[in-house]
Computed example of a mutant assay.
Amino acid sequence: MQEQLMISDETLTRINQGVQLHHQQGQREAARDLFAQIWDEIGGERGDPLHVCVLAHSMADVQDDVHQELVWDERALAAADLLTDDRVAQAGVPMSVAGLYPSLHLNLAECYRKLGDLDRARECLQRAQAGIGALGDDEYGKLIKGGLDRLVEQLAASERAVRSFRSVSG
């Protein structure tokens, strides 16, 4: 989501700078510090839902602990539920609110997979897949769809491992 944000909104521009620190410069800790500073400035979860959503979504990516990653991903999803297409368009974000959900649910599914909660991971994956119609056939849409395909494969491998373990131990 963040890679597409070529926007005049100062807060989103700063969040994008943190994303660049992380993804292009490999400065995960610096990105996390910048995100924490912005989080305080916007008033945390009480801030503008668009800022909260994008910032929490980005902050999740720089967490070292999957439990913290999940907390941030849940914050992003909760904020998305408060967004309107008008607010997103006003900020110059090139997609509808519906286009945010596949990525948000994908990230939640990945957290649950890492935590070994395969049922919840599948639920989130299904929600993400249900929303892919809101994605375009652009680079962002392909990125999310590719992530969904990888997660399907990872969940299948995890389920095979669980079945194998049960057959050996049971």
Score class of each variant (00 low, 15 high):
1 M>S: 11
3 E>M: 05
4 Q>G: 12
8 S>N: 14
10 E>L: 11
10 E>I: 11
13 T>S: 14
17 Q>R: 15
19 V>N: 12
19 V>L: 09
22 H>K: 13
23 H>W: 08
25 Q>F: 10
31 A>P: 09
32 R>A: 14
33 D>C: 10
36 A>P: 06
37 Q>S: 14
38 I>D: 12
38 I>Q: 06
39 W>S: 02
39 W>E: 11
44 G>R: 06
49 P>L: 07
50 L>I: 03
50 L>S: 01
51 H>C: 02
57 H>Y: 12
58 S>L: 07
62 V>C: 15
62 V>P: 02
64 D>K: 11
65 D>Y: 08
68 Q>C: 08
69 E>I: 03
70 L>F: 03
76 A>S: 13
80 A>Q: 03
81 D>T: 08
86 D>P: 05
87 R>H: 13
88 V>Y: 02
90 Q>W: 08
91 A>D: 02
92 G>T: 07
93 V>Q: 04
95 M>T: 09
96 S>M: 08
97 V>A: 04
115 L>N: 03
115 L>E: 09
117 D>I: 02
119 D>S: 15
122 R>W: 08
124 C>E: 15
127 R>I: 06
127 R>E: 15
129 Q>T: 09
129 Q>I: 08
130 A>W: 07
130 A>Q: 14
131 G>E: 03
131 G>I: 06
137 D>W: 00
137 D>M: 04
138 D>Q: 02
139 E>Y: 00
140 Y>E: 00
141 G>R: 00
141 G>L: 00
144 I>F: 00
146 G>W: 00
147 G>H: 00
147 G>N: 00
150 R>H: 09
150 R>A: 03
151 L>I: 00
153 E>I: 10
155 L>P: 06
155 L>C: 05
157 A>S: 12
164 S>C: 10
167 S>C: 08
170 G>P: 06
